[in-house]
Design a protein around this nucleic acid. Structure first.
Lengths: 155, 155
DNA sequence: GAAGATTGATTCGTCAATCTTC
DNA sequence: GAAGATTGACGAATCAATCTTC
């Protein structure tokens, strides 16, 4: 079944998605910079690294949908702040395995609470837990579909 | 009523929102650069300017949730490409009114079709029209709430 | 003095080139 | 030769400073 266009233009919905995400990001980012002097982008990377317990640079890039070079630089910043460390890959000397340090995990606990506060207010406070659950279901569906369709777009 | 946390952590949902939006943005942006040699950010600004029929720099900034300086530079690029023009504000000589040119409106028609194609495939094709409608409802609610809560966040 | 806008310096991510290792 | 990662140059947005007009 090929997608038909019964629902009217979809650009406005996408515009809303972008604006909502931007506004939420900015709110959380401002809160983190203010309270913990760190950017949300860095905390997000730290979060991913921490919860996987160790990953390669390109795995971080794939998870965040950023480039490998960008991921390398994010890690540079986190290493400089002693929040993660590069450890040698056990079988492949081209790779490093990036792991959260104790300081990184500690900072993550505090920053996660700050982010949770902002998001709970602005997402759950507006949509309610039921609305958040509906949103999450839709996003899960999209996320699953996006993973494989992100390849092979351009010739 | 203060927000309570019955739904579990909300950070993962936000992370999904960011990743889905990023992936969709990148797909549409790549398509536009490839077919029309213009960035999605510029098309988005052109879209907003066009559909309002004329607005000030700070109005564009407020709509897109970007800074005034950033909006000024987006307009610089669009002016350089002859897609919008700055016209004198009728009553306030500090301001300009930014309007889409004929070339801008023409380009917008073509690029909108390209964006619609990408989004129809990746949003509607995955969620269906009903799913898109549900997503749009949730985003509308969030957008309405965000407008007024974006002020007065930091001391 | 405040509001609207522009400009220059900085920051962050992408892209292309490069280096090392497979 | 290909894969993993890093580095420098570039593009785009933020922030602070500045200029003009209210």
């Amino acid at each position: 079944m090929v997608s038909a266009d019964f629902g009217g233009p979809i650009y406005p919905t996408f515009g809303r998605l972008v604006r909502v995400q931007t506004a939420l990001w900015r709110a959380a980012d401002a809160q983190l910079r203010h309270r913990h002097d760190i950017a949300l982008a860095d905390v997000t990377a730290l979060q991913v690294v921490s919860e996987t317990g160790g990953m390669r640079v390109q795995d971080l890039a794939a998870t965040l949908h950023i480039t490998v070079g960008g991921a390398s630089k994010v890690i540079d910043r986190l290493v400089a702040s002693d929040l993660v460390q590069r450890t040698p890959h056990p079988t492949d000397r081209r790779s490093s395995v990036v792991k959260a340090t104790a300081a990184g995990r500690k900072l993550l606990q505090m920053t996660s609470a700050a982010v949770e506060d902002v998001l709970t207010e602005r997402l759950e406070g507006v949509l309610g837990t039921e609305g958040v659950a509906r949103l999450d279901n839709l996003l899960l569906t999209l996320e699953g579909a996006i993973e494989y369709s992100s390849e092979g777009t351009l010739p």
